[in-house]
Computed example of a mutant assay.
Amino acid sequence: MLNIIDHVPDGLLAADARHLHEVLAGPTLIHLPGRRPEPLFVSVLLHGNEDTGLTAVQALWRKYQGRELPRALSVFIGNVAAARHGMRRLEGQPDYNRIWPGGEAGQTPEHAMMGQVVAEMRARGVFASVDVHNNTGLNPHYACVNRIDQRFFHLATLFSRTVVYFIRPLGVQTAAFAELCPAVTLECGQPGQAYGVEHVLDYLEACLHLAEIPTHPVAEHDMDLFHTVATVTVPAAVDFGFGDAAADIRFVGDLDHLNFRELPAGTLLGWLRPDGGVRLEVRDEQGREVGADFFRWDHGEIRTARPLMPSMLTLDQRVIRQDCLCYLMERYPLAGA
Rank of each mutant, 00 (worst) to 15 (best):
P37R: 13
P39V: 09
F41H: 00
F41W: 01
V42G: 02
V42W: 03
S43R: 04
V44D: 04
L45G: 06
H47T: 12
H47W: 15
H47D: 06
N49V: 13
E50S: 08
D51P: 00
G53I: 11
L54Q: 03
A56L: 00
A56H: 10
A56Y: 03
Q58Y: 07
L60I: 04
R62F: 08
G66P: 01
R67I: 08
E68N: 00
E68H: 00
P70F: 01
A72M: 08
S74G: 10
F76N: 00
I77S: 10
G78K: 05
G78S: 06
N79C: 05
V80S: 01
V80F: 06
A82D: 07
A82H: 11
A83D: 05
H85M: 14
M87T: 04
P94H: 15
P94A: 12
P94R: 12
R98W: 05
R98Y: 08
I99G: 07
W100K: 05
P101V: 15
G102L: 13
E104R: 12
E104K: 10
G106K: 03
T108F: 02
T108K: 07
E110M: 11
Q116I: 05
V117A: 04
V118E: 08
E120F: 09
M121I: 04
A123H: 07
G125L: 07
F127T: 00
A128P: 09
S129I: 06
V130W: 02
D131C: 12
D131I: 12
H133F: 09
N135L: 02
N135F: 03
H141W: 00
V145I: 14
D149M: 05
F152V: 08
L155I: 02
L155F: 00
T157Q: 12
F159Y: 09
S160A: 13
R161Q: 14
T162L: 07
Y165P: 07
R168W: 00
